[in-house]
């Protein structure tokens, strides 16, 4: 792997973001809107009925963490789509760029964007709702790292599908997180899901992360490590699977001449 080439790919995307107001909105505007909307909904619910202890911390924590996952996933896809949209894909893949360098650059961009979103949302949460994500201590880092890994894995799967099926599949860049959201137990515990979906949820790393977060907030620290470990192992499995899928579909795209077709 050549870090200069990875740096160049990152530099390209940073230039693109800095020149595109709408792309910058993905970092600054939408996450804050998300947080404000859920925050005010939570405050209203607390006014109507205060039967769930710590409701505000559950929901605000969930919104922040979900955005970390969502932005990490999204930027992996969008960094590829930007080259597709600007018809630059052939320039990239006729250059000495290895597929793993391209993927590594996308992962680093995902990490960068999710980190910025995390900082911004955390500050807004402190100011508006008095919620400090750092109160979760060392566990917060582990839970967030797992969401990052899952974002990478799903981002790579969505990108692989876009590589194979082209621009018509680009909606996956935004849709994939919402396909897994119902079984990710973001805003409710796994136990409220019907039994078959509970089985599915147990195989979703994010569900373990959000269960872990809720356990932590209710002082049930003993089971947090179990959730962190499960999420980590599942993420390793899914990252490996996503890598294999990407490689397979990329080679299929080469066989069918699709990379060139998308740009002509």
């Amino acid at each position: 792997m050549c870090w200069n080439r990875i740096y160049a790919l990152i530099m390209k995307y940073v230039y693109i973001c800095s020149r595109n107001t709408f792309r910058a909105m993905d970092i600054f505007f939408w996450p804050i809107m998300d947080l404000l909307m859920w925050g005010f909904v939570t405050m209203y619910m607390l006014k109507v009925s205060n039967t769930v202890p710590g409701l505000i911390t559950f929901l605000i924590g969930a919104v922040i963490m979900w955005n970390v996952f969502y932005r990490a996933q999204q930027v992996v896809c969008i960094s590829f789509l930007e080259d597709l949209w600007s018809r630059n894909l052939l320039n990239i893949f006729t250059a000495p760029v290895q597929v793993r360098e391209f993927v590594t650059a996308a992962y680093i961009l995902g990490l960068m964007q999710a980190s910025i979103v995390l900082v911004i949302m955390s500050l807004v949460a402190v100011v508006f709702y008095g919620f400090n994500i750092l109160d979760l201590g060392i566990y917060a880092g582990m839970l967030l790292a797992n969401l990052m890994l899952m974002g990478w894995a799903l981002g790579l799967v969505a990108t692989a599908l876009i590589v194979r099926w082209g621009p018509q599949a680009e909606v996956l860049a935004w849709a994939v997180p919402f396909l897994v959201q119902p079984v990710s137990a973001v805003f409710y515990p796994i136990s409220v899901l019907p039994q078959p979906l509970q089985v599915v949820a147990s195989m979703v790393p994010a569900a373990h992360v959000f269960e872990g977060m809720r356990a932590l907030m209710t002082g049930n620290e003993a089971i947090v490590w179990g959730h962190i470990g499960s999420a980590f192992l599942l993420n390793l499995l899914y990252l490996a699977g996503a890598g294999l899928l990407f490689r397979f579909l990329f080679e299929q795209a080469r066989e069918k001449g699709l990379l060139a077709k998308y740009c002509s």
């Binding site: 080259d83 600007s86 018809r87 630059n88």
Partner: peptide, 13 residues
């Protein structure tokens, strides 16, 4: 290296 009239560089850079 490669150049084509039908391939572009990112337009907002």
């Amino acid at each position: 290296n490669f150049a084509s009239s039908y391939v572009h560089l990112p337009y907002n850079l």
